[in-house]
Design a binder for these strands. Structure first.
Lengths: 226, 226
DNA sequence: AATGGAATCGGTGACAACCCTGAAGGAACC
DNA sequence: GGTTCCTTCAGGGTTGTCACCGATTCCATT
């Protein structure tokens, strides 16, 4: 099921077991994971707190780090941030009890290549480790949606019905105004008179029910028109 | 909000074959894909140009649309954008000859849930379709990195040295101005006279080497001060 | 032929924004 | 005690913004 694209074929040095480092502040869980995946990957070390993790990962330089998100003293985020600054090749796979969108987004922002919940089965976890080592991104099905939604939201499509209220020329003028152009600059740019620009701007503000160019700028930036 | 990763596999209505719609401007390729995946999914229609695709997808409302990226008259992007506006539940899986980062990023931005190259094997394509239907995100291994890199790059951390040039009061005034407050509003908010606000704003613009409040607004939003 | 929208301009007027000069009180530093 | 900076405020001026009142031309629809 979860072995869709094993393209570990072409990458050199990817025929051996992945070297894996485990980080979790619950030592029992740490031991459990270690014994479960021991045969399918090569565990080169473990750590149960943030500082020790940063230290040991820097020494061992594993291919993949399996890391808990919620930990005292900075959490998994700090480990990832500080490690990637020195060893950019290390791949991080977050393993968390939480499937909250904010946690997923935060961990991806600092550079993790995957995020799975602790309810995952052993075989799937091993598969995920192999895929992350190969450069793939691994997410639990529900979590993948959060990431893509958040990503798309950074420059969304916004098919806006309100924009249709504006005539083509009005939209054109609106974009300049929202970018902070003065009337004079817009007039020069579009080769029309300042008075025409004023007319268009008035129409835009009236149609969008805004009261000045500042609100227009915010309106436009919020729906990423500019 | 507390479902395991297994949830989508057990979700109701997901035990039958996925209904799939195919879009590609090469009819031969269309026929090839259709015959290859015919047993493993339920192909409910095909289209070989953008307009027909938008029309037919709107009628059939498939669960998954397998779509070519590069097509005349708007490409796959337009199909995705216009379809999602009316049918948000339709999942799009891009199938392209290109593995250029820009193509991948663009298609994800408009809302696709996956992107694989046409070199993919049939079995893997079928698996990808099933996973996209379930809500998972599917990428060829080398492409996943592009998306995550681009995503991580959207949230830089800027500790700004330029901000230290401003006195505390100036920073305070600056935040209001950057948000679009008028001088009068700032004066009322901070309980000072309009003339004082003018003084502070002038100092801010001079110190930051900006020429008006619009540039100041952009300056502030870019480094996420407001 | 008539209607109406879009695009183009003009005038007037009321503010808002921005610049310059100047200045007074206070805190901090040497 | 002098210097420097911050904060506060004022007068006077230019330019920018926006509204309300007009107008003409072009074009598509009726």
């Amino acid at each position: 099921m979860n072995k869709s694209m094993d393209e570990s074929r072409n990458a050199p040095g990817h025929d051996s077991l992945p070297t894996v480092f485990l980080v979790d502040d619950h030592e029992l869980f740490l031991a459990g994971v270690r014994s479960e995946i021991a045969g399918a990957v090569s565990v080169v070390g473990t750590a149960s707190d943030v500082d020790a993790a940063i230290e040991l990962i820097g020494e061992r330089v594993p291919e993949v780090v399996l890391i808990d998100v919620h930990m005292p003293n900075g959490g998994g985020e700090r480990v990832i941030r500080e490690t990637l600054a020195r060893h950019p090749a290390v791949q991080f796979l977050a393993l968390s009890v939480s499937d909250a969108p904010d946690d997923v987004i935060a961990i991806i922002r600092v550079g993790a290549r995957g995020y799975v919940t602790k309810t995952i089965a052993t075989a799937e976890l091993v598969d995920a480790i192999w895929r992350v080592r190969a450069g793939d991104a691994v997410f639990s099905p529900r979590l993948a949606g959060f990431v893509l939604d958040a990503f798309a939201a950074t420059a969304p499509l916004d098919l806006d019905p309100e924009l249709d209220l504006l005539s083509p020329r009005e939209q054109e003028v609106m974009r300049f105004i929202a970018r902070g152009y003065t009337y004079k600059e817009v007039a020069r740019e579009l080769v029309i008179s300042i008075k025409t620009v004023e007319t268009h701007v008035s129409a835009v503000l009236r149609k969008l029910q805004l009261s000045n160019r500042h609100e227009l700028a915010r309106w436009a930036t919020q729906r990423r028109i500019i």
